[in-house]
Design a binder for these strands. Structure first.
Lengths: 114, 114
DNA sequence: ATATACTGTTCCAGAACCGTAACGAAATGA
DNA sequence: TCATTTCGTTACGGTTCTGGAACAGTATAT
């Protein structure tokens, strides 16, 4: 149970967004970020279809986001050997480090918020 | 001074991103969101050049974002009559309401975070 | 008056995204 | 076996964003 007023929320959101924009890495889209966080925070397995349903978007959106984030090294794909129609989305060391930095950044901005 | 652990930060970020993706409104890009929040949270005046420098992006990025968010009604442009080279970025009722909803949403997600 | 500096915008080619629809591969059921 | 269903991906046409360069309009300085 976190106490975070709407005003504090916007201030925190602002700082986090600014930090994202200012660093040199290319920004993830809102959808990509939602997918990435879901893969790392929700329990596996994660399939394309499951992610699409969870986020309320079409399957090609997931496929394309996985393509992009795969190239970035943030997630990996693997065939489900038990049902080879499925693709299982997996975490990577690089992705875990990326989100760890993000969490640290937000946490730090929160600490500096009045 | 807010206490928000990295883990709580990611969880909060996740929920906020999911809410953004799931609603029907088109998602703002990270840059657009950063510009919008800067205009509403930092003291005016806001110029294209100032915003570009503050965010570390080029001026066309600001111009285009103002075009898009202007069509959405989230911000407005006005010539600076004292120096007609400048464009002053102004807040709108619709933009204020948008950010108020965003702040409420994040605040509410925070309250539901363990 | 004229050159210079500065502002925001527009133009350009390229990249990434979008939704819809069609698709091949794999599993299921008759 | 063969039709059907269920996967994820690809193809299509269109929109939006990107950085860099050129631009017109305004202010300033000589």
């Amino acid at each position: 149970m976190l106490i975070l007023s709407p005003s504090q929320s916007l201030s925190l959101w602002h700082k986090a967004m600014l930090a994202q924009v200012r660093d040199d890495d290319p920004d993830l889209t809102t959808r990509q970020m939602a997918i990435l966080l879901t893969v790392y925070l929700d329990p596996p397995p994660h399939t394309v279809r499951g992610l699409a349903a969870n986020l309320g978007v079409t399957k090609p959106v997931i496929t394309r986001a996985l393509d992009t984030m795969g190239i970035m090294g943030l997630v990996a794909r693997r065939r489900d050997e038990r049902d080879r129609r499925n693709v299982l989305v997996q975490r990577t060391v690089e992705g875990a480090e990326y989100l760890q930095r993000l969490g640290d950044l937000i946490s730090q901005q929160a600490a500096e918020t009045v």
